[in-house]
Every structure is written in structure tokens, then in C-alpha cells.
């Protein structure tokens, strides 16, 4: 049963990634695109964790943690750039 459920959730996350991609493409403003990218990061973490579960290994945990950290830092850096035109003042 678990395999089927994991496949269904894979499909759900895949659809949400496509929706995010749609928002990333149509915009219309820069903050919208940043928001879409940020959500895509989080959904990718979900995808990696699910892949680890379906493979039965917890090796992917470190990759997920790294994506979480880099996603947050890059979102904040891009927002800071939009706000100030400069990242490190």
C-alpha cells in the first residue's frame, strides 16, 4: 500500500511544481517570481525526501537539509538585492 501512496504523493508534488513553474513563467512582477522559486525549493525538498523513502534510504536527508538552507539564503539575498540594489552593505 505504501508504494502506491508514495506514488500518489509524488504526483501531487509534481503537479505543485508545475503550478509553481507556471507562476514563475507568467510573473507578472519580480517578487512573484521570487515567491514561486522559494516554493519550488520547498517542494523539491519534499520530492527528495519522498525519493529517499521510496528507495528505503535516509542518505538523501543531508541533500534535503542543504537545499533548505540554500533556498532560504538565496531568497533572502534576492529580496535584499531588490530592496537595496546591494546585498552586503
Amino acid at each position: 500500500m505504501l508504494e502506491t501512496v508514495i506514488l500518489i504523493v509524488f504526483a501531487m508534488i509534481g503537479v505543485s511544481l508545475l503550478l509553481n513553474l507556471w507562476r514563475l513563467l507568467i510573473g507578472p512582477s519580480v517578487p512573484d517570481r521570487i515567491l514561486a522559486l522559494d516554493t519550488m525549493y520547498i517542494n523539491t525538498i519534499a520530492l527528495i525526501i519522498l525519493y529517499g523513502m521510496s528507495m528505503g534510504t535516509s542518505l538523501y536527508f543531508e541533500a534535503a537539509l542543504l537545499i533548505a538552507m540554500l533556498g532560504f539564503v538565496s531568497t533572502v539575498a534576492v529580496c535584499k538585492y531588490l530592496l537595496r540594489g546591494d546585498i552586503i552593505e
Binding site: 508534488i13 503537479v15 505543485s16 509553481n20 507556471w22 507562476r23 520547498i42
Partner: peptide, 10 residues
């Protein structure tokens, strides 16, 4: 919930 969040985004 993840799907609902993305639906809200669109």
C-alpha cells in the same frame, strides 16, 4: 497541503 499552497500561488 503542499498542493493547496501551490494552487493558492496560481
Amino acid at each position: 497541503f503542499v498542493l493547496v499552497g501551490s494552487i493558492g500561488l496560481v
